[in-house]
C-alpha cells in the first residue's frame, strides 16, 4: 500500500455519537495536489468527517488513512503534517496576531528562528503584516479567518483541511479568503474543504462529493455533476401572491411539459431546460403572467435540490 499520492483514503467510514449516526459509511480518496470538497447542508456529516480526518475524533467504524497513516495510532504524526482551519476560530484572543502564529509554530516543534521567518512570510501571504501587533480581539471576522488560515500553514502542511472557511463572512471578505485559497491551490497544496455554499465549491474544488444525512449522494467535478444531474439552464419564475386555484403547484402542473423537470420552491418555480429564454416564451404563450423571470445556468445548488429534494441553505 505504498500509494504515496493518496492523501486521504476512507472506506466505509462511519461516525456515531451514542445512538446518532452522523456519518453512515462513506468512501473517499483524495489525491495529492487536488482541491477536494464536501458539499452539503448543515448536519450532513461534513464536520464530523473533517474532525476524523484531522485526527482529533476517533473513527467509529471503517477504514481511514491520512498520508497513509492510521489516526488511531499515529494521531500526533498525522497532525504534524496537516493543517487545520476549524469552523469555529480557536485563536488566542489575548495574544497579538504575530504571537498567535509564533506560538503555534512552536507547538509543532519548529526552532524559534525558523518560526519567526515563517511568521513574517505568512503575515505577508494573508495580508496581515500591518496588523502584526494588533490583538486578535480587535480584528474583523475576515481578518481572523485569514489569521486562522495562516496559522494552519505554519507547519507547511501536506494537506490543508478547511471546515466552512467562509461561513459568517461578508461577501468582500469571502472573496479575499477565496483568493488566498486559490493561490495555495496553484502552489500545489492539497486542499480539502467543507462548505454549504455551492459557489464556494464551484470556485475552489476540482472534485467534490455531495453529502446528505451522513451519506455521499454524488461525486464528481462541479461541471460533471451539473451535466449529470441538471440541465444546462434554469428558468426561474416568480408569481404574485398565490390565488385560490392558482397556487404554485397548480401553475407547475400547467408548465410541466415545457421543461425536463419543475421544482416548486416557496417563492418561485424552477424550470430545468436546455434553453431558458425559449421556455419562458412558451410560458407566456400559455397565458401565464409571472411577475419576474430569470434565466441562469445550472449550479451545484440545483444538483443538490435534484438529489435530495431540499435546498442547501435553509
Amino acid at each position: 500500500m505504498a500509494d504515496t499520492d493518496s492523501m486521504i483514503l476512507a472506506q466505509g467510514l462511519r461516525k456515531s455519537f451514542g445512538d446518532f449516526e452522523a456519518v453512515k459509511g462513506i468512501d473517499v480518496d483524495v489525491r495529492r495536489g487536488e482541491a477536494f470538497g464536501f458539499l452539503g447542508p448543515n448536519g450532513a456529516g461534513k464536520s464530523s468527517t473533517m474532525r476524523m480526518i484531522a485526527a482529533v475524533s476517533p473513527v467509529s467504524a471503517g477504514v481511514l488513512r491520512i498520508l497513509g497513516l492510521d489516526p488511531a495510532t499515529d494521531g500526533p504524526e498525522i497532525r504534524a503534517r496537516i493543517g487545520v482551519c476549524p469552523q469555529e476560530d480557536t485563536l488566542d484572543t489575548e495574544l497579538t496576531v504575530r504571537d498567535n502564529l509564533y506560538v503555534y509554530g512552536r507547538y509543532f516543534g519548529l526552532p524559534r528562528k525558523e518560526v519567526r521567518q515563517r511568521v513574517d512570510e505568512l503575515l505577508e501571504f494573508v495580508q496581515l503584516t500591518e496588523k502584526a501587533s494588533a490583538m486578535v480581539e480587535d480584528l474583523s471576522g475576515g481578518m481572523k479567518r485569514r489569521l486562522t488560515i495562516a496559522r494552519s500553514l505554519v507547519n507547511r502542511p501536506e494537506v490543508l483541511l478547511l471546515d466552512e472557511p467562509t461561513t459568517g463572512l461578508d461577501p468582500q471578505a469571502r472573496h479575499v479568503v477565496w483568493d488566498r485559497l486559490f493561490r495555495l491551490k496553484q502552489q500545489g497544496v492539497t486542499l480539502v474543504l467543507t462548505t454549504h455554499y455551492m459557489d464556494e465549491a464551484e470556485q475552489l474544488t476540482d472534485r467534490l462529493v455531495v453529502m446528505d444525512k451522513g451519506l455521499i449522494v454524488a461525486e464528481g467535478s462541479p461541471l460533471s455533476l451539473i451535466a449529470e444531474h441538471s440541465t444546462r439552464e434554469v428558468a426561474e419564475l416568480r408569481f404574485g401572491v398565490a390565488e385560490i386555484g392558482n397556487s404554485h403547484e397548480a401553475i407547475a402542473g400547467k408548465v410541466a411539459d415545457l421543461a425536463e423537470r419543475v421544482e416548486v420552491l416557496p417563492d418561485r418555480l424552477l424550470l430545468y431546460t436546455a434553453d431558458g429564454e425559449e421556455t419562458i416564451a412558451q410560458v407566456h404563450e400559455r397565458g401565464l403572467e409571472p411577475v419576474a423571470t430569470l434565466v441562469r445556468r445550472s449550479t451545484l445548488e440545483d444538483v443538490f435540490l435534484r438529489l435530495t429534494g431540499r435546498t442547501l441553505v435553509d
Partner: peptide
C-alpha cells in the same frame, strides 16, 4: 470560552 486547548491539540501535541 476561548477553546485554546482545541487549537493546541489540533497540532502534533496531545
Amino acid at each position: 470560552w476561548h477553546r485554546t486547548y482545541f487549537g493546541m491539540t489540533a497540532t502534533s501535541l496531545g
